[in-house]
Design a protein around this nucleic acid. Structure first.
Lengths: 246, 246
DNA sequence: GTGACCCGTCGGTGCGCGCCGAACCGTGCC
DNA sequence: GGCACGGTTCGGCGCGCACCGACGGGTCAC
């Protein structure tokens, strides 16, 4: 029996890499798609540098992370989109945690993140969800039979050449559940390409951490491309910028 | 920071459920979509019943498995398609293992499995891959922008009503890498519905273990529906049926 | 009722591994 | 050259847990 190509031991070894609180924290932190140094990851997870060093060795030899050494720094990234999706899926299945109380400071710090941020290599937050909703509403996407790009959508993307074949086993387009909005934003090869394009055009720029902001030029440009007004893209509905602290 | 809805500890707890060789074996065995008894799983994994019992408790309370008690038996199933996909993805990322040598007896026992079997709730093996290939070739599916059902495909399915909305977050249609063929077969809501339909029509029937066979009536019927000949659906290319016992 | 069987619980054992601090090495700055 | 700093290696500690065997309780067959 067991026509399974993978046996239990191999699966267990892989799962064991993520079965530690510290290593899991590393992977979640790296979901932002950036390269972190070993020290940054150690501090973020609250462990000694020596501890982090050993964990990182295991994650790299296990194939989940790749490293890049520069001078006395050791930069670490997730090994690829498929690893990012694996971590995402696993995190999605874990009990929500939904920590009950957050400090006001933390909430305010997250305001920028809730508006727009990277989710590995694509765009998340209210802006990411809005992008998906608008593309659906304008007939650029079709979700009736899985999420697909319509002919109109292909036109709309214009010059954006999507490496369809280069995708390997990664889906061209898929939904990715947004942590803050609890609704899907765009992921997959096309989601990543679209996000990268917005950065290349200078419409988006990186803020602190994973946060992303619309540039002064990018706001009207993106609004125009989507057939929206600039206020539709405003960072806050009304409370946040004006409301102050209550 | 950490706008992640799931913290490292929660992810680690979930991963830890699969980070044990025995528990991983259980989940892989249950990927056939059937309900196994505790004793069967214990024997398959090669551990004492008492050990299995404790592992099963953890998997059930962890939400990966559901149990159903009947008399003195305890039946266990995967908690749902999303869990099955999670296990599949994880197994797909684990180093292939690809055990080098297999006994002839084991190879022959797998012959039926290689032809057709269930993969959780959909159809796998040569027959499953053939089904996908043929549907693509006949324009019933389109893989240019993710795998989707074409209008022609919708007609072809006819009475098969697909619970599109009931799918929740499960994709309507997706590829699932076939262990024996190393090529994709159909999964997702539609893959499952199609497989169930073939059983309901009496075209397919269960063999031993995960194996599946075409019924005498099912062979011509399926061939006709796909525009193929019955020999196209033959269980073996030439060696197996004619070869006898050697 | 008696026996076979499936399953759960309870001690006890031993390995694995996650953690740290201390010492060490190489890089980059002054 | 000297020093600060990021990262790694090495012991050593202690918890957690996977395993089993033995026992007990519930279920079905005869």
């Amino acid at each position: 029996m067991s026509a399974t190509s993978t046996d239990g031991a191999a699966l267990a070894r892989l799962a064991a890499l993520l079965a530690d609180r510290t290593r899991a924290s590393f992977c979640l932190a790296l979901l932002d798609g950036r390269a972190w140094t070993a020290g940054e990851l150690a501090r973020a997870a609250g462990v000694a540098p020596s501890t982090a060093s050993e964990h990182l060795d295991r994650l790299v030899t296990g194939g989940l992370l790749v490293e890049e050494r520069q001078g006395r720094h050791r930069y670490l990234r997730l090994a690829g989109p498929s690893v990012a999706q694996l971590v995402e899926d696993l995190a999605g299945h874990a009990p929500g945690a939904d920590r009950p109380a957050r400090s006001l400071r933390a909430v305010r710090a997250d305001a920028a993140l809730a508006y727009a941020r990277t989710c590995y290599d694509h765009l998340a937050g209210r802006l990411g969800v809005l992008l998906r909703d608008t593309m659906l509403a304008r007939g650029l996407l079709d979700e009736r039979a899985g999420l697909t790009l319509t002919p109109a959508g292909r036109d709309w993307l214009g010059g954006l050449d999507v490496p369809v074949a280069a995708a390997g086993r990664r889906p061209l387009l898929r939904d990715c559940l947004d942590w803050t909005e609890r609704r899907p934003h765009l992921a997959g090869v096309l989601g990543a390409a679209l996000c990268g394009r917005l950065f290349d055009l200078g419409w988006l720029t990186r803020g602190t951490g994973r946060a992303v902001r619309l540039t002064p030029a990018g706001g009207p440009a993106l609004a125009g491309a989507l057939g929206l007004t600039v206020t539709d893209l405003a960072p806050a509905t009304s409370t946040d910028t004006g409301g102050g602290r209550a």
